[in-house]
Amino acid sequence: MSAQWHHASEDFWDDHPEAPRRRSKKKPLGRRQLAHLTSTDDIDVQDDIIRRLQDLGHITEVVAELKSGKEATAYVARGPRGSVLLKLYRDLEARSFKDDSVYRAGQVILDVRAKRAMEGRTRKGLEMLQHDWVNAEYARLWQLWQAGLPVPEPLVGPHPYDYAQTVPAVLMRLVGTEDDVAPRLSDAPLTPEQAQSAWRQSVQGMADLLRLGYAHGDYSTYNLLWWEDTVTIIDFPQLTTRQNPHFRDLLARDAQSLVTSFRKHGIQADADATLREVQRRALGPAPTPRLLLP
């Protein structure tokens, strides 16, 4: 993630830490009401983000709310390319999870004023953090999908200019169907054979991330989907690289989280042994890359 896309006029920085603070009257936007997302008749009621996504041709309508989490709410939508998973982030101030410093450690921000605004969490700094958080998920989703990892297909991009226009939304292909959306592994009823298969796939997925130099940061059955006996990895804005001084700790935490969350499915594994297996597999052959269609 970087802030190099910020090339605004000087007044953009009028609230940096050394300048007088202006109190914003805008209320932080949290969970959107489904009625506002699905309305098509009243322009004063329909959500402006949905209207923008429709104008850009990414979606035609929002069908239902799927799940609400700490940072965002997921919705099922429809678009020109079929069923869409629409992830709408809350404003940073409205999230229950706000401190992302452990994931951002080691990040290089070349623009000094941008760095100062982000660290000071000024109004503009929070806006930049919001854009970086969303754009990072798109960028990493594209990288992982093209590398052949089992992740949802991103539906906007791959050029950053395209997906920057959708902030605070991330659009990806829906895993499953509108009537039967893929459940999280934490919620999926598995036979013993399916549990063993899901475990092997999940360990391999963590190894494939490590091969690319990433620790997921929140790797457990809560961020893995199960559909047609296949594991799909989700939730990528907090991915960290080896430049992060906390990388080893986050990687070890991922292994522990995976082991702990799989106990529900009867898998008894050791976190240290799992981490060693992930590191061993990361030295093996990579998945077959996907080719972008022209």
Rank of each mutant, 00 (worst) to 15 (best):
R242I: 09
V151H: 13
D249H: 09
D41C: 13
A164N: 00
Q107F: 03
T122A: 05
A74T: 14
A252M: 00
K67F: 15
H58F: 13
L37W: 07
T177A: 13
H36D: 15
H131E: 15
T191G: 02
E10K: 12
A72G: 02
Y214H: 08
A117L: 09
R263A: 10
P245E: 10
L144F: 12
R211A: 01
A114W: 09
D179K: 11
V84R: 15
V63F: 12
D111W: 06
A252L: 05
A269Y: 07
K70L: 15
V259Q: 09
T232K: 02
D218S: 02
H36C: 10
H216N: 04
M118H: 08
V62F: 08
V231Y: 03
L239Y: 06
T260G: 12
H131Y: 12
G213M: 07
A77R: 09
D47C: 04
R173A: 13
D100Q: 10
L66M: 06
G213V: 04
A198S: 06
A215Y: 03
P20K: 00
L85S: 06
D44I: 01
A64T: 11
I50Y: 11
L291F: 02
R121D: 11
A35R: 07
K70W: 15
F247V: 08
V151A: 03
E277R: 10
L53P: 15
Q279W: 06
R263Q: 15
W142R: 01
P28S: 09
I233Q: 05
L283H: 05
A136Q: 11
E93R: 15
P189Q: 00
S202L: 01
A195R: 06
R263M: 13
F12M: 05
R22Q: 05
R281F: 09
S83H: 13
L275Y: 14
T232G: 09
